[in-house]
Structures are given as structure tokens and as C-alpha cells.
Design a protein around this nucleic acid. Structure first.
Lengths: 195, 195
DNA sequence: GGATTTGCCTAAAGCTATTAGGCAGATGCA
DNA sequence: TGCATCTGCCTAATAGCTTTAGGCAAATCC
């Protein structure tokens, strides 16, 4: 029988494409085998199991996203960098919804630590160097930015904003404006605990 | 054979509990049947199919969440209301991770329009009346708050913040501080488009 | 208490995941 | 070039989840 030339890489790549077409949760070993016109069992020589396949797709997405982010940040700072990084996430999610969903897959700690996920945090930190934040406020800001980017993108993608009036593109611009303002005027910690 | 007294409501309720225990994506008709010690086919008299079951769980979660939010907002305004609403989402997600995941299920437009999802948007709008925002800025702010709440909660729940130093409780307080500041000093639209 | 309704059951087919073992095409070495 | 080995894809089989069709008995309604 003709050998198709399966490898873990090709399977991962095709899995990512499949995810973008039908959704990450519809990525199945069977569907992938169908796509290569090959029997299901054949995939198990290249990929440990279904979970392994999903993890590989997630790692691919994280790496692609980190590469795009690094490109976008090169030579930019301040609000320019903020906007560029934010748009990387949003554009990637819209171009590759399945991969974006994959990037949210919960990874076990070791895998996560070895993934491109750490680069994302580093880049957000690098971006914040353009603002005047010291630890621990910088970490708070990293988390805020991550929350806004991920939250906005996933709500927008999920149709959460689709029914209402102002264009989401406009909101996006205004949200980035607001974040920039906020980062330039980061409120100091409350001196008095409330109570 | 003894009748167990299955109803769509009981199945939905048990499905929600199951979701919190094993994850929303592990909620299966079979697992639910097992939990009632009943054959799988029996569930199909009460629930159209697996998708229907999931949708019911999602609607339950949205309604519970909206009820909690309404309670929390009663009698509060300004930052007090902001904090209360934000904590409703965060606490619910931590107490009921499976239901919180269910609440993110993408619903078809009609179902979404008839769901408690609309109450959430209304309550966020109500909260913003304590700040001095007019349309369309109010809508932008609604979307920003939704993004931050959802983004923070889902990243925190997914372990995205777990490896780093400052306590996520502290970050959460500072993020709410920052949002309050931002809403009280919402930047005006840029007069000049960039380019 | 008999008729009807309703609830859970058995049976069956189809899809996905995963493992074990086989055969043939590719590769390595003389 | 020819043989041995290795590797890649295959068949076969098991098990779980989903869904539909049709049956029997318990509850319900006069």
C-alpha cells in the first residue's frame, strides 16, 4: 500500500487546519485519518493518542502566536507596541479560531513551562517597560492585559458582542486607548484597607 | 421496573453538578444515566439529545449567575457595585467551574436572546450608571468590563496565573481599583484619526 | 378496575478511541 | 543487485458514547 508519509508534524499541521475549519473540539483522530485517506490506527504510530494530538496543536498555536507577537513588537514601544500586540492576538483568533481555541488548552505544568506560553508573558512584560510600572504592579498589569486581550477576543469570537450597535472595531480601539491611559496613570495601592 | 422520576429539570441539575465535578466537556448522556442508575436510552424521553442537555445546563448557569449578580448589585453603586458584580463572576467560576464553562457555550441567536444572558448586559449597564458615561462610551465600557471579568476568571481558572509570585487575590483587587479609576476618567475619543 | 398514558427498558446501528499483530514497501549493507 | 531488517500502514477486535425504534409495565384517569 502506498505510504503517505505521515509524521507527527504533518499531523499536527493538518490538525490545526482542521481545527480552524470545524472547531478545535471537533478535531478527532478519525477525522484526521480521513483527511489523509488513511486508516485510523495508522495515526497511532506518530501520535500517542487523541490528547497528545491536541496538545501538539496547542503548542503549535502558542508558538505561531508568539512568533507573530515578537515580529509585531520589534521596534515598537509604548502605545504603538500595546496596539500591535493586542492586534496580533485578535487577528490570529479571527484568522485561526480553531488554533486560538487550541492555545487555551490546559497544559500540564511541565508542558506549559516548555511551551511558547512563557514567551507570551515575557513579551507582555517587555511591552510594559514602556510604561512606568515597578513590581508588583507590573505583574498586575501583565495579568490585566492578558485578561482583556483574551476576554475580548473570546467574547467577540463567541458572538457575545454581535447583537449590539457600535462596531466592535471601534470598541477595540477605544479599549486600547483606555488601557494605554490606565497604564500611564496606574493607580497606587490603597493605603488603607477598607472595612 | 421502578420509576426514578426523571425530568428535564432534574437531568439539567444533575448535569450541572456533574459538570462541576468532571468538567463541562465530560458531561455525557451516558455518565448522567449512570448517575441515575438508569439506561442511557431513558434520558432521551426528557432531553432531545446531547446538545440539548448541554444547552439546558448553559441556560441554568446563566440564570444562576444572573440571579447572584442581581442580588449583589441590589443597593450598591459605584465602585462598591463594580466589586460586587466582579466577585459574583469570579466566585461562581471558582465554586462551579463546570457551570461557568457551560455559561460560555455558544448559543444560537434565538436561544441566546431568550436566555439570562441579556440580564447580564443590562446589569453591567446599570452598574455603569454610577459612572459618568454616555453612549457609545457606555457600550465600550460594558464590553471592556465583560472582557476583563471573563478573561481574568478564565485565565485564573485555567491556571494561567498560577506560577507567578503575587497572589491572584491581590491582583484582582488592584485590577478592580484600576477599572474603577479608568471608568471615572474615561478617555475621550481621539479627535484626530492616526495615519 | 379497566383503558390509556407515560416512563424506563431492550435491541441495534453508527461513530470515535485505542491496542495487538501482520504484511509489504523502504532502507541498509554487502 | 540482492538479502535482511526496519518501518509504515493495514486488518481485526474491544470498548465507550449517541441516537432511534419498538416493547412492557407502572402510574393515572375515569
Amino acid at each position: 500500500m502506498a505510504r503517505v508519509g505521515l509524521t507527527a508534524e504533518r499531523l499536527t499541521q493538518a490538525g490545526a487546519e482542521l481545527a480552524d475549519e470545524v472547531g478545535f473540539d471537533q478535531v478527532t483522530v478519525s477525522a484526521l485519518a480521513r483527511r489523509f485517506d488513511v486508516k485510523v490506527a495508522s495515526l497511532y504510530s506518530h501520535v500517542r493518542n487523541s490528547q497528545d494530538l491536541r496538545t501538539r496543536i496547542a503548542l503549535l498555536a502558542l508558538a505561531e502566536l508568539a512568533d507573530r507577537a515578537a515580529d509585531a513588537l520589534a521596534g515598537r514601544s509604548g502605545k504603538d507596541a500595546l496596539t500591535a500586540l493586542a492586534n496580533v492576538y485578535r487577528d490570529y483568533a479571527r484568522e485561526h479560531p480553531g488554533r486560538y481555541a487550541a492555545a487555551q488548552l490546559r497544559l500540564d505544568p511541565q508542558t506549559a513551562a516548555a511551551s511558547a506560553g512563557v514567551r507570551h508573558a515575557q513579551m507582555t512584560r517587555a511591552l510594559l517597560r514602556g510604561y512606568d510600572l515597578t513590581e508588583p504592579d507590573q505583574t498586575h498589569a501583565v495579568r490585566l492585559l492578558g485578561s482583556v486581550f483574551h476576554g475580548y477576543v473570546s467574547l467577540e469570537l463567541g458572538g457575545g458582542f454581535s447583537h449590539s450597535a457600535p462596531d466592535t472595531d471601534v470598541t477595540w480601539i477605544r479599549v486600547l486607548d483606555a488601557l494605554d491611559t490606565l497604564l500611564r496613570n496606574w493607580p497606587p495601592p490603597p493605603t488603607e484597607p477598607q472595612g
